[in-house]
Amino acid sequence: TYTWNTKEEAKQAFKELLKEKRVPSNASWEQAMKMIINDPRYSALAKLSEKKQAFNAYKVQTE
């Protein structure tokens, strides 16, 4: 089980997950979700809006 003390740690864990699963920077949210949804870190960020925000930040960083 994973635990995160801060929102920032949770966001980092979520981005690490995207990186580890090699989600391409041109992937849509739907494509990315299919690649990461079974990992416990997918739940790091509770709100869908937070997940999408972190995903978009990840995409910008990896382009």
Rank of each mutant, 00 (worst) to 15 (best):
T1W: 10
T1H: 15
T1M: 14
T1N: 15
Y2P: 15
Y2M: 15
T3C: 15
W4Y: 12
W4N: 07
W4R: 04
N5C: 15
T6W: 03
E8V: 06
E9V: 03
A10Y: 02
K11A: 15
K11I: 15
Q12M: 07
Q12S: 13
Q12W: 07
A13L: 07
A13D: 05
F14A: 00
K15L: 15
E16D: 13
L18G: 00
K19E: 15
E20M: 05
E20G: 04
E20L: 03
E20F: 06
E20A: 07
K21T: 07
R22G: 11
V23W: 01
V23P: 04
P24Q: 04
P24S: 05
N26E: 10
N26M: 06
A27P: 01
A27F: 09
S28F: 04
W29I: 02
E30M: 08
E30Q: 10
E30I: 09
Q31D: 08
Q31N: 09
Q31R: 08
Q31E: 11
Q31S: 08
Q31A: 09
A32F: 01
A32V: 07
A32W: 02
M33H: 08
M33Q: 13
M33A: 10
M33N: 08
K34C: 13
M35A: 07
M35R: 06
I36R: 00
I37P: 01
N38Q: 09
N38M: 11
P40Y: 15
P40D: 07
P40T: 06
P40Q: 06
R41Y: 01
R41K: 04
R41Q: 02
R41G: 02
S43H: 13
S43L: 14
A44V: 04
A44R: 02
A44K: 02
L45Y: 04
A46S: 14
K47Q: 12
L48A: 07
L48N: 08
S49V: 10
E50M: 04
E50Q: 07
K51Q: 04
K51W: 05
K52R: 10
K52F: 09
K52P: 00
Q53M: 11
Q53I: 09
A54V: 08
F55Q: 02
N56I: 11
A57M: 12
A57G: 06
Y58C: 05
K59E: 04
V60H: 14
V60C: 15
Q61S: 08
Q61K: 07
T62Y: 12
T62P: 10
E63V: 11
